[in-house]
Design a protein around this nucleic acid. Structure first.
Lengths: 336, 336
DNA sequence: GGCGGTGTGTATAACGTTATAGATCCCCGG
DNA sequence: CCGGGGATCTATAACGTTATACACACCGCC
């Protein structure tokens, strides 16, 4: 098989322990031996066997990032950041797909991969506060997003209420009065959807616009097709909206699609805004106004918090709240 | 730490070896002992330590899928399929980002992760046939896409020439005569771009349309922004094209963006087609005509080929060629 | 009654690494 | 000249698993 420590030790004429010390500097090694060992390593092309190292150390060097959908560009972009950050800290990041299923989220929470990973970053959407509080596994856990709040774990999430309020206020400032919200959860889960609806209502209240429950459209999921169907429904109303805030960019893009097909003008007839700032929205027709969370900060903070905990950091749970900012594009832009 | 085989053995009053045999059925175990052991396992909640197992077996149960961009929806969709397939076969799939960099591709090829993974699925774009032929690592390797051909490794790829020919022929059938190709490689690498250009030329030849090199636009990368810029260039020509075939859906979507901003009608003034069938193209405005490779087949075959090789399958390298089909949408649809 | 076979269980040596507890040498102060 | 340290280096016991070799019983069969 591969080259092992023993081969290096024999070649360099030193003990196993010395080679190990050269490799990971646990204890100092004399300059001459260090060089001899290093040369042997280079010549034989040695790389440590990770399974053995992990068995011995009790750690694997792997962390997982579990998201509800791999094909959602938001998570793909987040994963991209997280993978790089993890690599920089000497860890390898594993993508895990929960498919927004309760069972999958619970299983991960309780250590389904316990012997494979040292820690878990989870974006919970199907489980709630109680399930997380009832967790028995001890593996470090970092939560991202506002799916679950007020639990004793590190958490990284933007202020969804504020983000949504900002987007809604922008629509209000454009003079819109019948503002719909697309992407309410059907059952009652998806905490983040509730928060975004709250921000939406706060902005309406602040502007003195009465809340119309008929303008809040539940969706099964939060993809493009869901936005498409929801928009269809809104256009069929007696008094269709003059603006739409979508749960995320994907549903917003679905809504844009329906509007285009129906011949409605965007933003003239209906203004549309999303949340997430996925690249797709910079190239859609029309381009999509959105609230951009600081994805770099989210991905990096989540990985850093997790690695800190894995490496023994104690202390109370921390809540990191990255910033966000509104990006105005054509979908709410001045009428052309 | 966790519960180990030894704990189970003590609890059930049997030897280590017997517990191991119950767990992974290497040798038969009597019915009564089996049940006693099983009960101990359930009660203590034992799960095998993977590091130890892998150290002993010489395998990790991990495979990697290395792609040039994680945020390209085509690869995200492919990864989604591959992860599921791998899980079904008892493997865990690790995503690796080469960023289309030669160094990263070479490093993986030569076993950068050799102790972490049992095999590699690589989508090569920056390296060529020579580099792959010169490979010295022995870890099983499966190539996807037509970046590299005629090498002694299993390969899974659609027929890019035929796919491109089909798309071009469709544009020809619509009566278009000045058909541009967006997304030629600048330097000369990206073998698959060359193949797609070849298919494009074949279709032109078959229709008796002279090839105009001025209509083939090189791009730095193959993202939305590249398509956007290339289209900008094409519109500035004295005789702009009446149709565009893009290297992939992303560049096509970038082209659509420029066309929309410039006020050109799609498909009336310019018809647009891509290759990949990413979901985004089903919701763009207008929706995007594309060639859809059988992504399920690609992802599944690649994982299966790799796992077969890991598990000792011999024999000559195989070339799997999944099917594709044209999907006509608005971007080439009949004039409205 | 001895012999091979089969069905079950056990003991134990690896796999490659790291951390602990020595071992060895040399230098220095008393 | 001896005791005491650094400074290096070594020997070795784990980590938890699996595969090999072995032990033992029991069976049927010439």
């Amino acid at each position: 098989m591969g080259v092992s420590l023993k081969d290096i030790a024999e070649r360099a004429g030193v003990s196993l322990a010395t080679v190990s010390n050269v490799v990971n500097g646990y204890r100092p090694v004399g300059e001459v031996t260090r060089q001899r060992v290093q040369r042997a390593i280079d010549e034989l092309g040695y790389t440590p066997n990770l399974s053995a190292r992990h068995l011995r150390r009790g750690r694997t060097g792997l962390i997982a990032l579990a998201v509800p959908e791999l094909t959602n560009p938001y998570f793909a972009e987040l994963a991209d950041v997280a993978i790089r950050e993890a690599a920089g800290l000497g860890y390898t990041l594993l993508m895990e797909n929960t498919a927004a299923e309760r069972g999958a989220e619970l299983a991960l929470l309780e250590g389904a991969q316990r012997h494979l990973i040292d820690g878990l970053i989870l974006s919970p959407v199907a489980i709630g506060r109680e399930e997380v509080l009832a967790r028995r596994a001890r593996m470090p856990l970092v939560l991202i997003g506002e799916g679950v709040y007020d639990v004793p774990y590190d958490r990284v999430a933007i202020d969804n209420v504020a983000a949504s309020r900002t987007a809604t206020a922008h629509l209000v400032a454009l003079g819109r009065r019948r503002i719909a919200f697309v992407g309410a959860p059907p059952g009652g889960d998806r905490q983040s959807a509730h928060l975004r609806i709250r921000g939406y209502r706060e902005a309406l209240d602040a502007a003195g616009i009465p809340f119309d429950p008929g303008l809040v459209v539940p969706t099964e999921q939060f993809g493009r097709a869901d936005g498409e169907h929801a928009m269809h429904h809104l256009l069929s109303l007696d008094h269709p909206p003059d603006a739409v805030l979508a749960y995320n960019d994907l549903t917003a893009i679905g809504a844009l699609r329906t509007l285009a097909r129906s011949g409605a003008g965007v933003p003239d007839d209906v203004a549309v805004a999303g949340i997430d700032d996925i690249e797709e929205g910079r190239f859609s027709n029309p381009t999509l106004t959105t609230v951009a969370p600081d994805k770099r900060a989210i991905g990096r903070s989540a990985v850093r918090r997790l690695v800190s905990r894995i490496e023994g950091e104690g202390g109370p749970p921390m809540h990191v709240q990255p910033s966000f900012h509104l990006i105005e594009r054509e979908s709410t832009g001045p009428a052309r």
